[in-house]
Each structure stands twice: as C-alpha cells, then as structure tokens.
Computed example of a mutant assay.
Amino acid sequence: MTPETDRSNEEVADLVGKLVAPEEADGAERRRLLGRLSKALARSAKNARGSGAGRGRWLADVFVNIAQRLPIRDYATLQEHHYGLTGEQLADDLVRTAAKATTAIGAVGGALAAAEFAAPPLLLSAPAQLVAETLVVAAIEVKLLAELHEVYGVSVEGNGSQRAAAYTMAWSKQRGVNPLTPGSATFALGAAAKTALRNRLMRTLGRHLTTLGPFLTGAVAGGALNRAATKRLAEAVRADLRRQRALPPA
C-alpha cells in the first residue's frame, strides 16, 4: 500500500467517523461531508488502481480500516447518552437512532445521485457518491451491532482490532457474534472473511444503485431502503443476542 493510499484511507476513515458520530448533523453538513468523502474515495480508488474484482477488495480493505476506528460505547456510556434507558428500551432507542441516521444518509446520498442523473455530464461521478453512502451506512450498522452486544451483555474478547474484526464479520453475516465459537476471541479477517465482507458491501452498494433516479425519487428510495435494512439487521442481531445472554439487571 502506497503512502498516498494510506493518506487517502485515513481521510476516508476520518470523514466516515464524522458522519457516524451520534451528534445530530443537519442536511447541509451531511451533504458537505458526503461530497468530501466521495472525492476522498475517488482518490483512494485511483491510488489503489483497483478495477473489476479488485475494486471489491479495495472496498473491503477501506472498510476494515474504518471499522477499526469506530468508537463503540460501553453499557454505562450508552445509558448516559440515552437518558438512563436500560435493557430492551435502550436497545429500541439505539435501533431508532441508527435507523434515523441511515435514513438520513440514504436521503442525502439518493438526492446527490438524483442530481447527477439530472445532469448527464456529471453522471460519471455518481458511483463515488454511492460508494460513500454504502460505507457510511455499513459503519453505522456495525457500530449499532457492536453496541447492541454491550446492551445485551454479550462480551466479545480481544484487542480493539480483533473486536472490530468480529463485529465486521458479524455484520457481513447479518447476525450477532457468538463468543462461544472457537477462535472468536482471536478473530482476524482472513481471506474467507474478507470475501464475505466484500460480498456484503457489494450487495449493499447494489441496493444503493436503485437510488440513481431522476428528481427526488432517489432521496425517497435511498432513505426507505436504508431504514428497512437497518431494522432487519437489528432484529436478527437482537434475536441472536437474546438467545445467548439474558439482559443485565436494570
């Protein structure tokens, strides 16, 4: 990996972190950050010289770097940030917040893509915007998945990068982490795991391609599709976690 690629990927991770932050951002700020992220991703892809299947590998590598830097709050911090809620109510609020965030990103990303669709000379820049939306939505969902583990008291052992890898792989499979699975405490993203991650990211990107439509249809479709997908993920993960561990005392 070249120094230019490293710098581009660090910029990408920083911008995604700002878009994933729990603080509310208005639509104008989201559009500004997504625009910057699109340009940074275009530079990263160019530096990586990826094409075809290589682009999928590049996308997975970029996301692994992002996932390792996501700030995952512990149970006490989550309670503090969510007005003292506990248990299922806290989990419900986390899901509502994440779904609201992915809806907003989908609406902004869809609107950007719609604007590009309406201006044919700029159409070629639209895919970078959809890649940006894909990475931000995936990051929001991985963060949600990780914090649901905190709420349900399901501990994922290991250092920061190992835990990030475990949550990323769980997102790829759309389920919770089972800490009883052999090797889960020393989880690392090997070739098979990276293939699963790449496939999940490419499916998510494919979903976002449906937002490439004229006028406001992209914004409406982008928001609705993201909200539904985030809720489906949350339902599957929560079902897994309930089976694994009872809720901690309120």
Rank of each mutant, 00 (worst) to 15 (best):
L144R: 01
L112D: 06
G222E: 03
A48Y: 10
A114F: 11
A60E: 08
R207Y: 15
R57P: 03
G183V: 05
E4Y: 00
R245W: 03
L233W: 02
L130H: 09
A170P: 07
R238L: 04
I72R: 02
G190W: 06
A234I: 01
A165R: 01
R30S: 08
W171G: 02
A132R: 12
L15T: 12
V62D: 02
H208S: 15
A192I: 03
A246P: 10
D14W: 14
A132C: 15
A40M: 13
L148F: 04
E147N: 02
P3G: 11
R203E: 08
D74Y: 01
R227H: 15
P127V: 05
F187D: 11
T217P: 10
V108R: 02
A40I: 11
L37N: 04
D26L: 07
L241Y: 00
R238F: 03
A28K: 14
A128F: 13
A170T: 12
G84K: 01
L123V: 07
A40L: 13
L144S: 01
A128R: 13
P248W: 04
L33R: 10
A221P: 09
T195H: 09
L34K: 02
M202T: 15
S8C: 07
S155A: 09
V131F: 05
F63Y: 03
R200Y: 05
A67D: 03
R49L: 06
S125N: 11
V220A: 13
L37V: 05
P248Q: 14
T195D: 13
S51E: 13
V177I: 00
I140E: 08
T97G: 12
A104H: 05
R73C: 06
A221N: 14
L197T: 08
Q162P: 05
R31K: 05
G35N: 05
I105F: 14
V20H: 07
V20L: 11
V137M: 10
A104P: 03
A250C: 00
F215S: 10
Y152Q: 03
L90Y: 00
T77Q: 10
Y75P: 05
A192M: 06
K143I: 12
Y75E: 02
K39Q: 13
